[in-house]
């Protein structure tokens, strides 16, 4: 048991854990905001009346969703610098996570939009609303309620996907175990603490999901 807690307290181990998880949270928050925005835009494209935009949205989803995340990371961190663009690993990791997660967000948004009866959009169009107004005022507000649970699943998956960045020179939670094993800390204890760290990070997301579901359940 002493060993187990020692993992956190020995030397400056606590510092490594703290830095690792801070980077994970930063990576998560930035990539979450960006992928929600990009995913929302892609979702809007997929239901827009303009065929080119619809095709672009569909093409994006089909290409990106079928590409392993590790490959997306490798592209951004190893291949893009070869084009003469020198970006640090951290921003590259944010971009990789955004590009990848946005495809999933897009599909959640689209399925949410599909839960709203077509008559709602028709009535809005019949009033003379533009596409943006129909989507923003009528369809999306009714779609978010059913989008919340799958969207949280996507975000939780993304939070865990941040660990892939460890393989690409970003010091985040997934990299902690390497540092620790160099210092001779027991693997079991280290991995358990990392797991506990992720559980603690995910709990607020679950609570947030509950809150949103309850909040939006009333207004109708």
């Amino acid at each position: 048991m002493g060993d187990f807690f020692g993992v956190l307290t020995n030397g400056n181990n606590g510092r490594v854990f703290l830095d690792g998880f801070t980077n994970t949270v930063e990576l998560f928050v930035i990539a979450a905001l960006c992928s929600l925005t990009l995913g929302m835009l892609l979702g809007a494209m997929r239901v827009s009346p303009v065929p080119t935009l619809r095709a672009f949205g569909a093409g994006y989803v089909n290409i990106v969703r079928n590409t392993p995340l590790t490959l997306v990371f490798a592209f951004l961190i190893f291949a893009v610098p070869k084009l003469g663009l020198n970006i640090n690993p951290f921003p590259s990791a944010c971009v990789a996570l955004t590009v990848y997660t946005a495809a999933f967000v897009c599909e959640v948004v689209r399925s949410g939009i599909n839960t709203v009866p077509t008559g709602q959009g028709e009535a809005a169009r019949a009033l003379g609303m533009t596409f943006g107004q129909v989507l923003g005022l009528i369809v999306l507000p009714q779609a978010v309620r059913s989008m919340v649970p799958p969207l949280m699943s996507v975000l939780i998956a993304m939070l865990k996907n941040t660990t892939i960045a460890a393989g690409f020179s970003v010091l985040e939670a997934g990299a902690i175990q390497d540092y620790m094993s160099e210092r001779g800390e027991p693997r079991f204890g280290v991995l358990l603490w990392v797991t506990i760290g992720f559980l603690i990070l995910i709990l607020p997301l679950v609570a947030f999901q509950r809150y949103l579901e309850r909040k939006w359940a009333v207004a109708r």
């Binding site: 009866p117 008559g119 709602q120 028709e122 009535a123 809005a124 169009r125 019949a126 009033l127 003379g128 609303m129 533009t130 009528i138 507000p141 009714q142 207004a219 109708r220």
Partner: peptide, 23 residues
Amino acid sequence: GRSLARLRADVGMVFQSFNLFAH
């Protein structure tokens, strides 16, 4: 497009299933 939206604003439409905005 926008000109179609303008035209629709001048034509009232009542549907079989009402289609009031539920929210």
